[in-house]
Design a protein around this nucleic acid. Structure first.
Lengths: 238, 238
DNA sequence: CTAATAGTGTCTCTGAGACACTATCGG
DNA sequence: CCGATAGTGTCTCAGAGACACTATTAG
């Protein structure tokens, strides 16, 4: 394993990991952003940015481990839904030099989060509807967020992803609401129930009384590590 | 732009770009591999690997540009279908140190390629069916190839990707053959034609005589920079 | 004519969408 | 009883799959 360093002396890009963390809060899709420190030597001082940072070659065994570490640090959540989104790299995206970031995207239930406030870097939920072109994010994080949103909205059409936005157990009406919030349009109840149950990724877990007149069946995911793919989408006929 | 180097003195991972280049040759899906040099200081000497290498912070403006450069160097092809596949990074994947690779995947027509042979690194097409667990690829390139195959087979079900495996103009029977080769199963002719034409991504380009008894209509892509998504898949009924 | 490939017509059936309906609770 | 939410039944229709059919060429 004694690494040969010969001819590896060229300049290496900076390597970071950034995470787009989504949740649904107040019936709105929200993303977690941190405010960058304001020092004069900092890039994008005081701008909002995705949580993330440099890979630590001593602490992190892999990119995924690095993402998990950063997510745990910020939110206290151990095992959210986490998938790779892509990578962005180039000469000009960071004024400090050629840099490449590995972006991940995560879904979690709002109430499972205890935001950890680093006084230098305050963290806050931002409704995605309220920041589209408004305040510009640091680096190319606006592009990354955009890609994450497209991926999320796309996958929601044909997967069980929104289940990760809810604490278990949850009811079918609650789950339907998650789909509707992410997609931004109502879904037919009957069709939704038929498909969700036919997809066979839920198991019953007793009745829940969530304050509505009639108690509803509570459900849990059969396998929290698997995502269900529906054969077709929820698209309206149009 | 004068970059502050203060506090950026920690160790940086090695950064590479690797490309999974697919084509169809002899009615088989094939992938381009290069043989690693055999020097005693080289990792995985003489093993087959995906084409790729270190990002050059002077030559490459971005990850995508880096991928294009490497692809052009190896195959002489300027504008193939090229998309990002994902990234793989960790402490142990390269014996020379913590490294992260940005993987891309490309599709091109076999006859558009003039393989550039670097005497130190011979390049050759390998039928994917013939190397599954057989010869182990260098680094984690087996995993990357596996991911590329899954992505390709998956997307072929509902996109026009196989069109990039053919030189233009091509006939519908030729295009159908590309789908069948990648999917590894026959497709119904009538349904295929209906859907391909309804998807409206082809434009007619006169009749072609490809040696078969009856000449067939030749087609070109309306927009070589866009991929068509079908509303449903080609899956057989059960 | 025949063989071979290009291209079309037609039947069936699944499953999604729309929407009206019933069921069960609190008050 | 009523209102509200949970959950079901039913009609229709687009579109995919299966497969038999016609069309056009070479010899």
């Amino acid at each position: 394993m004694a690494a040969k360093k010969t001819s590896l002396s060229f300049e290496r890009p900076l390597t970071t990991v950034d995470i787009v963390i989504f949740t649904v809060l107040d019936e709105q899709l929200q993303v977690l952003l941190v405010q960058r420190p304001g020092g004069p030597e900092e890039p994008y001082p005081n701008a909002w940015a995705l949580p993330g940072g440099f890979v630590d070659v001593d602490k992190d065994d892999s990119l995924l481990a690095c993402a998990r570490r950063k997510l745990l640090d910020k939110t206290g959540v151990k095992s959210p839904y986490l998938e790779q989104l892509g990578s962005w790299g180039g000469k000009t995206r960071d004024p400090r030099g050629w840099s490449a970031t590995h972006a991940y995207f995560a879904l979690l239930a709002a109430d499972s989060v205890k935001l950890v406030q680093d006084e230098a870097k305050p963290a806050r939920w931002h409704p995605v509807a309220e920041l589209s072109p408004r305040k510009r994010l640091a680096f190319d994080h606006g592009d990354i967020l955009q890609a994450a949103l497209e991926r999320l909205r796309n996958k929601v059409e044909y997967t069980s992803l929104p289940a990760f936005l809810l604490p278990e157990p949850f009811t079918l009406p609650q789950l339907q609401k998650m789909y509707e919030v992410v997609l931004g349009r109502p879904i037919d109840k009957s069709g939704f129930r038929t498909r969700a149950l036919a997809a066979d990724f839920l198991k019953e877990d007793g009745f829940l009384d969530v304050g509505s007149p009639r108690p509803a069946m509570g459900y849990r995911l059969k396998d929290r590590s698997a995502v269900m793919y529906f054969p077709r989408t929820f698209s309206p006929r149009s």
